[in-house]
Design a protein around this nucleic acid. Structure first.
Lengths: 287, 287
DNA sequence: CGTGCCAGGTGCCTT
DNA sequence: AAGGCACTTGGCACG
């Protein structure tokens, strides 16, 4: 049964409106649907959920926060943990709310008074359905605002690549970078260099821990370059990263892949990072 | 300046409390901190943010929803998209709110009246800091509830593995599964079988699209098994999956890795799935 | 803890 | 649309 806590508010950056302070079964679905796709919707209450698609997940009753964003992304969040316990990506074909009754016996909803609010979505692209049923709703609100999101990211792989192009000696003495993001049929090679002996060096850049898959990448690049360039004798392969497991290190050695350790976290704090207006106060960590 | 929209509410599953309806600069930090770690906190307002750690991300002003969960997970959500624009994992050592003033000139906060609310967190484990500054707060609420989360997942890789063990003929005639999750120094082999000719078959299971890295995995497993078992002549390698690109298919062939196509999405809906009480109504998709 | 690997991975970009 | 790959990948399981 929908709780008597139910309250429906609308937040804008200018004003707060109370849409409903008490239950209004007759219009709740219609009212919710009015905000779909134009506002971010939050429903907090006791619900269960089922996702069916790539996998099937069945979620028992619990108090959760359902967020329906403007682009129809759906997130069902619990009170702990980073990731939503269930979600639906944007691109749903249908997003329907309806009142259902909770009893096994299918009486008329208006007579039983056992209202449950059901959200059903279907995403044609992936053939995935998502259903949430609220047994209790504690609050409901719609949110709107200015969507100005300028994000600036520094210290990602692209940044490191640029930095190495500027400072090739970090890789090894007298190496020259001759290609960057070199296109092959199987992907792009981060960097290609010529060493002091004129040998080609295929370089794969990794910001975080090297994985076996990373090793494979560079092996395949060597294969494809040897095939395309037809110079089997002159190719070196190298992975540059900050961390590698011992096992994988020896594996690379066995397969004639060099590992060059560069501690990005030691280099990057020393690189003057671009500053943004009005955000100087934030840069307290490195000062 | 903190908005006059500011409102602080507390939601429980029994009752809604209005903590503040108007601004109270003096106590806002203290009041927020009172709920930290015990309630889920939501702050909706106009904010900027800086994350500094594995990467440095600087986020300009925008209207966003900040969620601080009970375990101190922090999510900064925009009005669109699945992933938060910024976040902090649980395990922060510090989580501090404080009022700062907005002007360049560092006057006394209480005199300028230009209050900004700053959230600063530091996560020692990863050396990551996260700062959010609200120029405007539209609403603030604390949420509590029953945290009962029983989730049941079917159709993941583990499920498929079990299903193949039960139905090995899906792989090929007269194959016997002799190992499951077989431990090697470089990882676990999903399945090991013996075919009708007594040959060992190393099997890698993939639920979704086969990637080049998956091919590498099975090649490495073959290498290590040949080394450990010392039977180079009797090893077959196989990837089982539902989908593979043409290029990769030929790559596998070149490297003597067999590909066995099994359409999981055709098999799994036909497997009677466990049903949960009270959720029968959800299972409308497959009926 | 590290190591390995799945994930309903998601998101971004290129062909 | 498919491929390729980075991501503050997150999360789990196991030695």
């Amino acid at each position: 049964m929908l709780s008597n806590l139910y309250e429906f508010t609308l937040m804008t950056s200018n004003k707060k409106y109370v849409i409903d302070i008490d239950l209004d079964y007759e219009n709740i679905v219609q009212k919710i649907e009015h905000f779909l796709g134009k506002f971010l919707l939050e429903i907090y209450g006791n619900c269960s959920a089922v996702f069916d698609g790539r996998i099937k997940s069945t979620l028992g009753l619990g108090d959760r926060l359902l967020i329906i964003k403007i682009d129809q992304t759906i997130l069902l969040h619990e009170l702990r943990s980073l990731k939503p316990i269930n979600w639906q990506l944007p691109g749903v074909g249908k997003l329907e709310f309806k009142l259902i009754n909770s009893g096994e016996n299918k009486q008329d909803i208006k007579q039983t008074n056992n209202y449950l609010l059901e959200l059903y979505t279907f995403r044609p692209k992936t053939n995935e359905s998502f259903t949430v049923v609220f047994e209790n709703i504690y609050s409901l609100r719609a949110i709107t605002g200015r969507e100005n999101s300028e994000i600036n990211i520094e210290g990602n792989e692209a940044d490191m690549q640029s930095y190495l192009v500027q400072n090739p000696s970090l890789i090894e003495d007298d190496i020259k970078i001759i290609n960057r993001e070199y296109n092959t049929p199987i992907g792009k090679i981060d960097l290609i260099g010529k060493d002091k002996n004129g040998k080609t060096v295929l370089i794969e850049l990794k910001k975080s821990l090297i994985t076996p898959a990373d090793a494979f990448q560079i092996v395949r690049y060597r294969e494809i370059i040897m095939k395309i360039w037809n110079k089997p004798e002159n190719i070196r392969s190298m992975i540059i990263g900050s961390k590698i497991s011992e096992k994988l290190y020896f594996y690379l050695k066995e397969h004639e892949i060099e590992f060059k350790e560069i501690k990005w976290n030691e280099i990057f704090p020393s690189i003057p990072r671009k500053k943004k207006k009005k955000l100087n106060d934030f840069f307290s960590k490195n000062t």
